[in-house]
Every structure is written in C-alpha cells, then in structure tokens.
C-alpha cells in the first residue's frame, strides 16, 4: 500500500547540501528513510520504477532541487505531473534560486511548495522542522499506486 511508505526522496546534486540537509533532519529527529539521487534522470527512473530501481519504495514526499545534471528539476516535475497516479505525489522544490522565473515556472508545472535554501544552518533546521510538521505529519496524503 502506498500509504505505508514514509520514504523521502531527495533529488540533490550538491554533496555538501545533501550532508547538511541530512544533518538538519537528524536535528529535528525525523526518522523517515531518505533516498538521495544526484540527477534528474535518476529521479525519473526511480519514480518510474525502472532499472536499477525496480521494487523501489514510493516516496511520500519529493524534495527537488532545480539545477540538476542531465535533467533539470523543472523537467522532472513536468514528467511527473503527466503520470497516471504518480502525479499526485507532493513535490517541494528546495533550491538556491529565488529568481521569479524559476519560482513561477515551478508552480506552473505543479510544484506544491517552493523553498529557497537558506545560507545559515539554523535557518535550514527551522525550515526542516516546519516541513516535517506540515508535509510529513499534518498533510493528508493522496493514493499513489505503482503504474
């Protein structure tokens, strides 16, 4: 069952950011397993359950960077929103860009939320704390099944 999945999919190519985001998750005591993918193509393969991700756990939330190798976050989002039921997956964009063209495009393509990575670690911890409360605890999930 889809709702049994508590995995968080983090699509992020900057290894420092991956470490810091994981550290922030630890600080807030989030126990959800985190799957990290480093480019847009991997993200699509994973979500589609293609090789080498056959039998992967469907995530309950996607944290998506925009500037990624191979396929951008915008492209991943565009692909995701065209899938049968996968399109219901909540996607929170987590990126460095605060350019309005990026923000608007992300919402146009169906992002559920847009967060700009803060420079200070304390601010990142606060952001992750709020993210946990809202998207992982409060938010009611839709049915998402494997296609």
């Amino acid at each position: 069952m889809a709702s049994d999945n508590y995995t968080i999919l983090l699509v992020e190519d900057d290894h420092n950011d991956v470490l810091l985001i994981k550290r922030a998750f630890q600080k807030v005591n989030i126990a959800n397993p985190i799957v990290v993918l480093n480019d847009g193509e991997q993200a699509i393969s994973y979500l589609a359950g293609r090789e080498p991700y056959v039998g992967r756990a469907l995530p309950m939330l996607v944290l998506l960077d925009l500037k990624l190798p191979r396929k951008s976050g915008h492209e991943v989002l565009e692909w995701l929103r065209q899938q049968q039921t996968l399109k219901r997956l909540p996607v929170v964009v987590l990126t460095a860009s605060s350019e309005s063209s990026d923000v608007n495009r992300a919402y146009d393509l169906g992002a559920n939320s847009y967060l700009v990575k803060p420079v200070t670690f304390d601010a990142l911890v606060e952001m992750v704390r709020t993210l946990n409360l809202y998207w992982l605890i409060l938010n009611k999930r839709a049915e998402v099944s494997n296609e």
């Binding site: 420092n16 950011d17 810091l20 990126t95 860009s97 350019e99 990575k117 420079v119 990142l124």
Partner: peptide
C-alpha cells in the same frame, strides 16, 4: 550570470556556514 551567481556562488557559502556550525 545573475542566475548563476544566485545559485552557484551561494552553494559554497552554505557549506562554509553549515560545516563551521557542525
């Protein structure tokens, strides 16, 4: 250029700040 400044130049700063904090 501005886009790359906003995106790429700030990434090392997050690392500096984050790991100094750690």
């Amino acid at each position: 250029f501005a886009y790359s400044v906003s995106h790429d130049l700030r990434a090392p700063l997050r690392a500096m700040e984050g790991f100094a904090n750690a």
